[in-house]
């Protein structure tokens, strides 16, 4: 091979870059995080039920929170009627969501950190105080 040294160095860099995740994750297991719902408020509930079904919340909570913000701030409408059971809730991240899910680190952050999502909720809202684990 002509200029073999340079070409081989280039190929090693190429393979290294494209297999970087394999080396980076070596020895780890592919465990997905499970958000924790073990909080005093949730444990008090007879039927553990969020404002909508778990599956729906998992897929759509971010859009719902976005709509809630617009509804409260722009229209002054604070009432949310659940489409699951018709119950009424007050649209409030700090007073409704976080009242039950008072464990931001074990609930919100678990998946957000795993999927590298940075919601900008907390640039305005105050995150609940939690004991350091």
């Amino acid at each position: 091979m002509y200029n073999g040294g340079k070409i081989i160095v280039g190929l090693i860099i190429f393979v290294g870059l494209f297999t970087f995740p394999i080396f980076y994750n070596m020895g780890k297991t592919a465990e997905a995080p499970k958000p924790n719902i073990d909080t005093p408020e949730i444990n008090k509930m007879e039927k553990k039920q969020c404002v909508e079904s778990k599956e729906w919340m998992k897929a759509n909570h971010m859009q719902m929170l976005d709509q809630w913000r617009d509804s409260v701030l722009r229209d002054g409408n604070l009432e949310y009627v659940s489409s699951t059971d018709g119950k009424k809730y007050i649209m409030s991240l700090q007073n409704t969501c976080m009242r039950c899910h008072s464990n931001k680190k074990e609930f919100c952050d678990k998946c957000h950190t795993y999927a590298n999502v940075t919601p900008y909720c907390w640039t305005c809202h105050i995150a609940p105080k939690e004991k350091e684990i």
Partner: peptide, 10 residues
Amino acid sequence: DIVGVKKLTM
């Protein structure tokens, strides 16, 4: 479901 997808890729 992004968490599921990441579980597969990981």
